[in-house]
Computed example of a mutant assay.
Amino acid sequence: MCTSLTYTNRTDQHFFARTMDFPTTTPWRPSFLPRQQHWTTGLNDERVTQQAILGGGRLPIGIDNFLMADGINESGISCAELYLPHAVHYEPAAQAGQLNLTPQDFINWVLGEHTSLDAVSHDLPRVRLVNQTWHDEPYVYPFHWVLSDQTGQTLVIEPTGGPLTAQVNPSGVLTNTPVLEKHFENLNRLLGVNGATINVDTKKAAQHWLQSAQPLPTGSIPTNRFNHMAIRRLGTPKLSTEQTIPTLFTWLNEVRLPYDPAKRHQISHNYTHYRSVIDLDRHQYYFRPRTTERLQVIPLTTEMAQQWQTPVVFSAD
Rank of each mutant, 00 (worst) to 15 (best):
R10C: 06
P34R: 13
R18W: 02
T11W: 07
F16C: 03
P23W: 08
G71S: 04
L33T: 09
R58E: 13
D70K: 06
P60D: 14
P23F: 08
T11V: 11
Q37S: 06
S31Q: 08
W39G: 14
P30Y: 06
R47G: 05
H38A: 10
A52F: 07
I72S: 00
E74F: 12
G71A: 03
L54Y: 12
Q37L: 10
A17V: 07
P34I: 03
Q50R: 11
I72C: 03
P27F: 12
H14W: 10
G71I: 04
F22G: 01
N65T: 13
H14E: 03
S75N: 14
T49I: 07
R35M: 04
T11M: 05
N73A: 01
R29N: 15
S78R: 00
S31T: 15
D21G: 00
W28S: 02
S78P: 01
L67F: 13
A69N: 08
D64M: 11
D45G: 09
F66I: 13
F66L: 12
T40L: 13
S75Y: 13
T25H: 09
F22P: 00
S75E: 13
F22E: 10
V48Q: 15
R58L: 15
F32G: 02
H38K: 15
H38E: 07
T24Y: 01
T26K: 02
H14D: 04
I77A: 00
G57D: 08
D45V: 15
T41N: 04
Q50I: 01
F16D: 04
F15T: 00
L43D: 02
R29A: 14
N65V: 12
M68L: 15
Q36F: 10
I72T: 03
D45Q: 14
S75T: 13
T49L: 06
S78H: 11
R58M: 15
S78K: 00
D64H: 14
Q36T: 05
I61C: 09
T24S: 09
